Amino acid sequence: MDRVFRAWLAVASLTTLFGFAGCSGGGDGPARFRSSGSVTIDGQPVSQGMVYFMPAAGNEGPQGYATIQGGKYDTNRDGGGTVGGMHRIKIVAPDFEYESSGDIDLPKSDGTQNFELKAIDVRRIVPGPPA
């Protein structure tokens, strides 16, 4: 009886393990691609913030995102790859926000996209008084 129980436990464990492994690879959703690059404003690296990749009208798929650290971002680090195709871009940093005025065509493959912003193109965020 003990041997039968151990065999059943091994089969159950392997079934569970393979079930979890099958859930972690994109599943039924669209393929996502790695996007990485730099984010600067007037030539200076943006120290921290977020980049959002929002599919434009007619482009199916989830929004991608990446954390900016030291002027660099990488969707692989955060797990929010892009679906490729036409996107609107939003960049949020502690002291400014930027949203693209037009769409950007991202590759349907891994790629590099640098964002070289100008201070005149961003909306400054002024911190409010302490609560």
Rank of each mutant, 00 (worst) to 15 (best):
R3I: 07
R3S: 11
F5V: 14
F5Q: 11
A7E: 03
W8D: 01
L9R: 11
S13Y: 12
L14C: 13
T15D: 07
T15C: 11
T16C: 12
L17I: 15
F18Y: 05
G19D: 03
A21K: 04
C23I: 15
S24A: 13
G25A: 01
G25K: 11
G27S: 06
G27H: 01
D28E: 05
G29E: 15
G29Q: 08
P30C: 04
F33W: 10
F33M: 06
S35A: 13
S36F: 14
S36Q: 15
G37Y: 08
V39C: 06
V39K: 03
V39F: 04
T40F: 03
T40E: 02
T40N: 03
D42A: 09
G43A: 06
G43R: 03
P45I: 10
P45N: 07
P45L: 08
V46G: 05
Q48W: 07
M50E: 10
V51H: 01
F53K: 01
M54L: 11
A56Q: 00
A57E: 03
G58W: 10
G61A: 05
P62R: 12
G64Y: 01
G64R: 07
G64I: 07
T67M: 12
I68K: 02
Q69F: 01
Q69Y: 06
Q69K: 15
Q69V: 15
G70W: 06
G70N: 09
G70R: 01
G71F: 08
K72Y: 14
Y73W: 12
T75C: 09
R77L: 15
R77F: 09
G81N: 02
G81E: 01
T82Q: 14
T82C: 06
T82D: 06
V83K: 09
G84L: 05
M86W: 13
I89L: 06
I89C: 07
K90G: 07
I91P: 03
V92P: 03
V92Y: 05
V92E: 13
V92M: 08
A93C: 10
A93Q: 03
A93F: 00
P94F: 09
P94G: 06
F96H: 04
E97G: 04
E97Y: 04
E99F: 10
S100Q: 01
S100A: 06
S101H: 14
G102L: 07
G102A: 13
I104F: 14
I104G: 11
I104M: 13
L106N: 08
P107E: 01
K108G: 04
S109Q: 11
G111P: 04
T112Y: 14
N114R: 00
F115N: 01
F115Q: 02
E116L: 12
L117S: 05
K118W: 14
K118Y: 15
K118H: 15
A119N: 07
A119V: 11
V122P: 01
R123F: 00
V126L: 03
V126S: 04
P127V: 04
P127W: 08
G128H: 01
P129M: 07
P129L: 08
P129E: 13
P130D: 08
P130W: 11
A131I: 00
A131C: 02
